[in-house]
Design a protein around this nucleic acid. Structure first.
Lengths: 168, 168
DNA sequence: GGACGATAGATGCAAATGCATCTAGTTTGG
DNA sequence: CCAAACTAGATGCATTTGCATCTATCGTCC
């Protein structure tokens, strides 16, 4: 967690390619990110402490969730890894745990012998749905009283745009 | 982690106190949170991998940063803990590490003998500023091309409002 | 087609994290 | 004023994480 920006004046000899970047611009970006970051922390803290995640840690649920939304039902480990804030090795071991609990199954990627396809088992799908139901309820309890529908729409639009326009 | 919402229909027998909550409301909230969450992960992943955080892990920087913005320069551990996505014990040990590196100092809270006040040392302040400068530059590089100034303002407003209206 | 560099994932090992518990100081109730 | 309940933070210990490295497959270039 380190979103914040310090107080430096920074006339900054940074990129002057197209539109030159002012200190004001930089400060706004830093404050915006900090606000986004702190909100995420605050919401996540509350969600994590709910009863929904006694059954499965949040990171592990997220993998089940991600698989559940995928149309084909199977994803490569590296695709999942982009989605999640975990190192490659941590994800690998997290999947070990899920597999040992019988919630997911590894299989070899048909088009790439190095790759691993991960899919939900029946039990994994059940558990995902079960936790998911509680989870959504918790989310709604936090967001509905805080933001109007229009504000939520706008927040979603902005965060989607941000994500879409990131490099990589 | 686990932001997402599953696909359940959920006519939901939930709270019907004031304005009744529709399935649509719930779905919008869940999608909004997922988008916020994924954006945060995507941005954080890029920030973390930058050179700014080779010197100090992100969580540790965040504590230094938090202290640096506090007017009095000192904060209670439990106050810091609210800010950060870490358990109480993890924060306690994180502070041990910072203290061993000479970046912060513990002192006893004057009004409460149980409490610990944490303050930056000179070295801690220096390091915070140094990392902070790079960090802000990285943030600006990610956000400026993605969102206009007006959009950033709005994103900041919405995330601030969300955080302010959370229970607790 | 065989060597060379790149990529997907797994693994050894040290460090970080969380849960449960412990200690010590504070507040409350009688 | 003392005991019981509560709060702030520290600590033992098992689990999780990340870095570095390793193995195996893929792609390329000659």
């Amino acid at each position: 967690m380190s979103s914040p920006a310090p107080a430096g004046k920074a006339p900054a000899g940074a990129s002057r390619a197209a539109g030159s970047v002012s200190g004001k611009d930089v400060r706004l970006a830093a404050e915006t990110w900090e606000s986004l970051f702190r909100s995420q922390v605050a919401v996540m803290r509350r969600l994590q402490s709910g009863p929904a995640f006694k059954k499965l840690p949040v990171n592990e649920y997220d993998v089940l969730f991600t698989l559940s939304r995928c149309p084909t039902g199977k994803l490569r480990l590296n695709e999942i890894n982009d989605h999640v804030l975990l190192s490659q090795s941590s994800l690998s071991r997290l999947v070990d745990r899920l597999e040992k609990r019988g919630l997911v199954e590894r299989s070899i990627a048909p088009e790439d012998g190095r790759g691993i396809l991960l899919g939900l088992t029946e039990a994994g799908l059940e558990l995902q749905k079960e936790i998911g139901r509680e989870h959504v309820r918790d989310i709604a309890e936090l967001l509905l009283p805080a933001l109007t529908a229009a504000e939520q729409q706008e927040l979603m639009r902005l965060t989607e745009k941000l994500r879409a326009k990131l490099p990589g």
